[in-house]
Amino acid sequence: MDQKMIKKYFAAALLGALIFFLGFISDKLVVDKLSDKKYVKKCLVERENSYIKPNDFSFINPLLDCGDVGNVSHQNINIIKTKVVQFIDEQKANGNITRMSVYFRDLNNGPWFGINEEEEFNPGSLLKVPKMIAVLKEADDDHLILEKNILVKGATSTFVQYFKPEVSLIFDQAYTIDELVRRMIIYSDNDAAAVLGQLLGSNILYKSYEDLGISVPTDGGYLTSVRNYGSFFRILFNASYLSNKYSEKSLRLLSEVTFDKALRVGVPQHVQVAHKFGERTDGGKKQLHDCGIIYVPDKPYLLCVMTRGYSFDTLASIIAQVSRIVYEGVEEKKVE
């Protein structure tokens, strides 16, 4: 091998080693940065400074996501959590619930707490939120898809709802995809959801799960936790998956949900709530959940509550009381 070839191979080997070394150092720096308390503190300050003024958007606040900061030990967070834990224990002792999970997160600067936050439940109609996200992700690429008309020929869902839609689809009538999304969210219409599912197919509907690193649902057997499900509301609030336009549209629709027997009850009417409920019957046991964003002025927070018990009405009342405990805690002792 001549001298020129030796130099060429040597240079290539040196370059490869250099790239590997720089990649290794880069990965290490990223990991170190995410675990660096100074970085997290700086990140949180930048989040506060980037707050979008109300005139720009009403429901979203695209901020730098600093990830989970951890169970912050601020006294007011602990007071709220302690009260909720005591309430849950009382309800269990009285036989009103069998299981319950709660996830709270301050959406301004990230403090959070969870109670049985990793326990899994059947989400029921909560899955209509990621279905909406999947449809609007398509609209980000082609907004005309929302104007497409679909003829609804008859009932397509077999699930019986305890909390029935206030408005149902009229069969043998055409609806735009935009209207089907609206009815699916605001009225929790199962037929609207089923039509959208059939129209778009599982590849499109479940792409958002894959993009976000969340397991894809299977018919009837899908389980999720309050913390995992809360991710959908976080990505809408931060506009980190959909565009600002469609993140805002999503949360606006969720603020118009007609179901008002759980989270909504615990919050004064002047405070906006963008939320979605879900129900499921499994044998003799019921599951009822309500998750969403409560827009306390200058202090929006995410609250997700999932329950198991024997009466939907009782479970709704319990969720409402948890919502009230959290709201009063946030308002009386500001989470800072």
Rank of each mutant, 00 (worst) to 15 (best):
I80S: 01
K285C: 02
F20K: 10
F232R: 02
E248T: 12
Q269S: 13
S240P: 06
V72P: 00
I186W: 05
Y327D: 01
Y9W: 09
L127S: 11
L212T: 10
E210R: 15
E120K: 13
V195H: 00
A11K: 12
S26V: 05
V216N: 06
E46A: 14
Y103E: 02
F159I: 12
D219P: 13
V271W: 03
F259I: 09
K249M: 07
F104T: 02
A239R: 03
E179L: 06
N71P: 09
N108C: 02
D178S: 15
T82W: 02
G220S: 02
G67H: 08
T218P: 00
V72E: 12
Q161F: 10
K261V: 00
S255V: 08
G110N: 05
L253P: 00
D142G: 10
Q3A: 15
Y175I: 11
L199A: 09
L205F: 06
M184W: 13
Y187T: 02
S168Y: 04
F20H: 04
T224L: 04
Y39E: 11
P130K: 12
I97H: 10
G292Y: 07
I177D: 07
Y175C: 09
I186D: 07
L251H: 09
E166I: 11
S240E: 08
S73H: 09
K153Y: 03
K38Y: 13
N190M: 04
L169A: 03
V30Y: 15
A316R: 05
K164N: 11
G201F: 01
G154F: 06
K37V: 13
R252N: 03
I25N: 12
L22T: 15
D2I: 08
F171Y: 14
G329E: 01
K33V: 07
H143F: 15
T281R: 00
K8P: 01
D178W: 05
E90R: 09
G16P: 08
D32M: 14
L251M: 08
S215F: 05
F10R: 10
Q198P: 02
T281F: 00
E138A: 14
E48C: 03
H143P: 14
T158I: 09
E256Y: 11
N149E: 14
L180D: 11
I293T: 00
T314N: 10
G283A: 10
Q86W: 01
Y103G: 00
G292N: 06
F159W: 13
R234T: 13
Q91C: 04
L180I: 08
Y310E: 13
K33W: 04
P123E: 06
D172R: 14
K299I: 01
I145W: 00
P123H: 05
L144Q: 15
E46P: 06
K7E: 14
F232N: 04
Q269T: 15
V160S: 13
L18H: 04
L180E: 05
N55L: 11
L22E: 12
K92G: 02
I97W: 04
R47I: 01
I177C: 04
D290R: 11
I150W: 02
A274S: 14
G230Y: 09
I25A: 13
S50D: 09
T224F: 05
F171E: 09
